[in-house]
Design a protein around this nucleic acid. Structure first.
Lengths: 211, 211
DNA sequence: ATGAATTTCTGACGATCGGTAGATCGGACG
DNA sequence: CGTCCGATCTACCGATCGTCAGAAATTCAT
């Protein structure tokens, strides 16, 4: 369905240091932040999980906050690029919309640890970074709303929908994935993304028969 | 649209003690848990917010955990009763479904502080209580899935939908409300609930024209 | 085998946390 | 006026937190 799906490099918490440990710490931190929340996850927990002493973590990280930043920024970067590539590839507004929602949903499933932290732990980040995240989120939502309005003008999308509410609705469908998705189930992230983005689009279509 | 909407009494953190302070502490705690998360909210924060000394809080509460329990249980009780009243009032499966989603959405908007804590801070609760919450959630989702299947058999709902995924989708639309709703906006919780439950139902309808 | 570089451990620090005990305040009531 | 009691404050405890400096261990090229 989409070939815009390359793999994202792990953010380097500290460049040039042991890559394996770096990745392990990043992924374990994301998982713990997801399971217990950022504030409730102690560096002792993280050290135990990766098999290091608490102090040894500081060879790889600068602070606990920077660790959350690394996790959060992984999702942040995704949404920045998704917004930038929004209008590419052409097609009708509805087709463009479904393409974006599909990519969004697939990322949300494949990286549900990161996505959960991105949405739940924003308040623990620095004020400046919070503002950047909010700006990115607003730009992303605005581009979705623009597509909804274009679709309404083209008659592809139900005219009686409030674009703001409708976008919140479809975003909720996708951003809820991390609450229930677990790898190893019957469906792959791609299949889930295809089904949910299709259902989301369905919620926007005009009714063809009487109500 | 629904007259099942009575007001819910504040849970008594400690009965017979000054009600005003009780309510104030409950609501402030819910707001702080929502804003900063349970673990990141110190009793000092709460004491400052209500204008008391930290130690004085223990005249009203038994522990910090019990405070989260009180907040969480407010939402938990709602879902228990919503599940129990699911099949009442009659109507087609789709009508019953929309009625439940409407009530769900309205609660999510009116009590978005509580709802956010209910979904985000589950891991901070005792294991036994977590199990009760999960059981309630599963029963609720099962009753929604049952309605979707009945609707599919009756031809009201698109037959090609996976009931599990479809229910997760509509629940996401509603449970995402606390991320964007703020009181004082243009729309009331009732209006938001009406629009979103309608959009959710739309996402389930069979397409009448070709695809 | 040697030495440098990388990785990990030890042990401590100041701060903050949830929680407790006892003193204090002020109004109600006899 | 004295007593009582609900409500609040003050002061403190032990535990845990994130962080750091420096030593120890390990790895690796030469």
């Amino acid at each position: 369905m989409s070939e815009t799906s390359r793999e994202w490099p792990r953010p380097k918490i500290r460049p040039r240091k042991a890559e394996v440990r770096n990745d392990q710490i990043f992924e374990t931190a994301a998982r713990l932040f997801y399971e217990k929340g950022y504030a409730a996850t102690s560096l002792q927990d993280l050290a135990n999980a990766v098999g290091l002493q608490k102090g040894s973590l500081y060879y790889y990280i600068d602070s606990k906050k920077d660790l959350l930043f690394a996790v959060t920024d992984y999702a942040h970067t995704f949404f920045v690029e998704l917004t930038q590539n929004a209008e590419a590839e052409g097609g009708t507004p509805l087709q463009t919309l479904e393409r974006m929602l599909y990519q969004h949903a697939r990322f949300a499933a494949e990286h549900f640890h990161v996505t959960a932290a991105f949405y739940n732990e924003r308040s623990a980040l620095s004020d400046e970074y919070q503002e950047r995240i909010v700006a990115t989120r607003d730009a992303y939502e605005a581009s979705l709303r623009r597509l909804v309005r274009s679709g309404q003008e083209a008659g592809e999308i139900a005219a009686d929908l409030d674009p703001r509410l409708a976008v919140f609705g479809v975003l909720g469908m996708l951003n809820w994935i991390h609450q229930w998705y677990r790898p190893g189930g019957e469906l792959t992230p791609s299949e889930i993304a295809a089904a949910l983005s299709r259902q989301a689009v369905r919620s926007l279509l005009p009714r063809t028969d009487a109500d």
